[in-house]
Design a protein around this nucleic acid. Structure first.
Length: 694
RNA sequence: GCCGCCGUAGCUCAGUGGUAGAGCACACCCUUGGUAAGGGUGAGGUCAUGGGUUCAAGUCCCAUCGGCGGCUCCA
């Protein structure tokens, strides 16, 4: 007889097996109505799941009474169920579709379907699908589960003939399932049904609000060589209010999108005449990039780095030695062929397809736009004999690299075909690895802290033991992986280890952040590499007068300047801290009468290297403030006759919708200077206007 | 690269086969105004590009280029 323990540790006993719904009814009629599922001993279940043993149970309602919103579990149930409702609606509207797989997500749900030939699903179908879904929800049909033994279930699926569902079932069985389950939206045998392990809400009517969001394509099993499927994304909530909130949130996120802000604030431009994925840094964006480079450059000098500069191309042979060419040839720009080689090939009667083959296999004489900076830096290392006393040698460069990303992958500044890495390569002795790794990590930490990027995760990328794409000896990999693990541990943040995420030459520590639409991007990276030193036969003379092999560390705290600035634009929503802001101060004369005084204030600012402009437009002060605010200028100085008389400026700070008061010109200039040099640790507000509420 | 959607003025967008539109920005004029848009006038378009259908194409069809959302990939 089941003893049911509730989250508050109270216990209820029953004299026969009960369902979660019955437990809820036993507690109260209101709860019985509200319950949509249960967590039984930690496992999410239907409210109709029969409980026969003693268990701990947590009843799940659409809206959690304490939190006032839906829990993750509730949303999982709602969205999973809504995916079924959508699938049923699609089946009705487009006869002949085959269902594949429809899971809930953190951000909603999707259903992968195979559409019949000649009847693609389009966004124009959304209205009809949504209408059909609304009907199904209004009918408040129960989700009824039934189970069949494996053999019987497979027979049923085979007779129905959906290869996708058969595949799903086979996978479930492989994973250890001893039965197959279906959910009918209504009476099994009569109503629409779907092979599904559940769980679901009790009935369609519990889905309070939903919306079909978008259409995309996907591959079966995520395999690009397999069937192409149509993926329909949707979202569901317990009620319309939460849906509206979510949609509003998406709108807000769109405003922060670096592509939108990049245009509005004139930070960068991508021009199709130049090429896809090739970022043009406009003056405002260039300021931000420059400031970041100066910021980290000062730190690099402290840590004993040396700047180097390298050309943007290198001989193809160089990248064959490094291994980049054969490993990644498909994601590189095609090689640049030697004129003499091309002429000789032509004279020899080489056909176009033969030439293409030579190109693809790299059997040509020519050059490559560099996909990585390391080979060049390696050649600087090996350009002179090195003693153990010289190590570590730390070579840094903001090096631009080129990668042929697939066209569908390109995205603003975040995924591009040419980007500049704040790259460095550290050549050290094995006994120096740990200390050098720590130096690299402290650099990353300092960067992230200064910029307030707190929402990131750390991933240690290890080799995948089953893959052959890695080069080098297993012992070296073990050592390198150990070094990365230990260094990452010292960070004190949450670290995950992910096999298969290593570079082909070594393991790495990656810093990963999310953009405004929830996509994750790798920023900084630190990699330990035993392999390239071997490939290039690097050496140093040890204290024993013998030749030894150095170890390399690749590291890039920002990662790519393009991606990093793209992420920063979203992080700050375009409102950069004063030290990074392209325009730090704007002077706003009240009228032409104050133009001269305004110019003198402007000069005082510029004399101290403050990036300032003046708005001499023939507009009222209200309009000038509005325009400057929209451009997210940190400080606005209103200057009129009375300010001139007192030799002061009237100050507005970004985000504070008010006149803060006045300061003497010099006091303001000094304040901004210390705000800039302290990178925001001191501000005008904190020094002079503490009382102001943000 | 793949699937779907999209491409009209510098920007944001309206325009369902019959003379190309709005707001903002821009130029000029009036206004000289004290804290989130004063008023007027004007200029600005090969409707992404190339083909096709049609008496007639921004609008329908095809291709190409580019953008967006995903999938896959990311040294």
């Amino acid at each position: 007889m089941p003893r049911i323990t509730l989250p508050d540790n109270s216990v209820r006993e029953f004299d026969k097996p009960v369902t979660a719904a019955e437990v809820a009814a036993d507690i109260g009629a209101g709860l019985a109505k509200a319950v949509i599922g249960a967590k039984i001993d930690g496992e999410l279940c239907d409210s109709a799941t029969l409980i026969t043993n003693d268990v701990e149970i947590e009843l799940i309602t659409a809206i959690d009474r304490k939190a006032g919103e839906s829990t993750e579990d509730a949303l999982f149930l709602l969205r999973h169920s809504c995916a079924h409702v959508m699938a049923e609606a699609i089946c009705k509207i487009i006869p002949g579709v085959e269902l594949v797989y429809g899971p809930p997500l953190e951000t909603g749900f999707y259903y992968d379907i195979a559409v019949p030939e000649g009847r693609p699903l389009s966004t124009d179908d959304f209205e009809a699908i949504e209408a059909e879904m609304a009907k199904i929800i209004k009918e408040d049909r129960p989700f009824k589960r039934y189970e069949l033994a494996v053999e019987e279930g497979m027979n049923k699926l085979k007779s129905e003939g959906s290869k996708y569902k058969i595949d799903n079932a086979e996978r479930a069985i492989e994973a250890g399932s001893d039965e197959l389950s279906w959910y009918a939206t209504g009476e099994p045998g009569e109503a629409w049904e779907d092979l599904c392990k559940g769980p679901h809400v009790p009935s369609t009517g519990r889905i309070g609000a939903f919306k079909i969001m978008s259409l995309a394509s996907s591959y079966w099993h995520g395999d690009a060589d397999s069937d192409r499927l149509t993926r329909v994304y949707g979202i569901a909530f317990a009620d319309k209010k939460q849906l509206a909130k979510h949609l509003n949130h998406l709108e807000e996120a769109k405003k922060r999108d670096h592509r939108v802000l990049g245009k509005k604030l004139q930070l960068f431009h991508i021009d199709e005449a130049v090429g896809q994925g090739l970022v043009l840094w406009t003056p405002n964006g260039a300021v931000i990039r420059n400031e970041l480079q100066n910021f980290i450059g000062a730190e690099l000098r402290k840590q004993g780095y040396h700047d180097v500069y390298c050309p943007h191309i290198g001989k193809l042979e160089l990248y064959k030695t490094s291994g980049h060419f054969p490993y990644y040839s498909e994601s590189q720009f095609v090689p640049i062929m030697d004129r003499d080689f091309l002429k000789k090939a032509a004279d020899d009667g080489c056909s176009c397809s033969e030439l293409a083959n030579l190109m693809a296999s790299g059997d040509i004489e020519g050059y490559l736009l560099k996909p990585m900076n390391c080979p060049h830096h390696i050649k600087i290392y090996s350009s002179q004999p090195r003693s153990y006393r010289d190590l570590p040698v730390r070579l840094s460069e903001f090096g631009t690299v080129y990668r042929w990303e697939k066209s569908g992958e390109l995205s603003g500044m975040i995924r591009v075909r040419s980007f500049t890495v704040d790259d460095a390569h550290l050549f050290c002795r094995e006994d120096q690895i740990a200390e050098e790794l720590n130096g690299c990590l402290s650099l990353v930490k300092m960067v992230f802290q200064t910029l307030g990027l707190n929402d990131f995760r750390v991933r240690v990328g290890l080799r995948d033991p089953d893959s052959s794409k890695y080069v080098g000896k297993s012992e070296d990999w073990d050592k390198a992986e150990k070094a990365c693990r230990e260094a990452a541990k010292s960070l004190g943040t949450h670290v995950t280890e992910e096999p298969g995420e290593a570079a082909f030459y070594g393991p790495k520590i990656d810093f990963i952040v999310r953009d405004v639409i929830g996509r994750e991007w790798q920023l900084g990276t630190v990699q330990v590499d035993y392999n390239l030193p071997k490939r290039f036969e690097l050496s140093y003379t040890g204290s024993d007068n013998q030749q030894h092999r150095p170890v390399m560390i690749h590291r890039a705290p920002f990662g790519s300047m393009e991606r990093f600035v793209g992420v920063l634009i979203e992080h700050f929503a375009g409102a950069f801290p004063t030290w990074l802001a392209p325009e730090q101060v704007r002077v706003l004369p009240i009228s032409e009468k104050s133009a001269d005084y305004g110019n003198s204030v402007l000069k005082a600012l510029r004399d101290k290297d403050i990036r300032a402009t003046i708005d001499h437009s023939n507009e009222r002060i209200q309009a000038k403030i509005k325009v400057a605010s929209e451009m997210k200028v940190p400080y606005l100085l209103v200057v009129g006759p009375s300010d001139q008389q007192d030799q002061v400026v009237s100050i507005r700070a970004r985000g504070l919708r008010q006149n803060l008061g006045t300061l003497p010109v010099n006091t303001f200039v000094e304040g901004v200077c210390s705000e800039i040099s302290s990178r925001g640790k001191q501000t005008i507000i904190s020094e002079h206007f503490q009382a102001v509420e943000a």
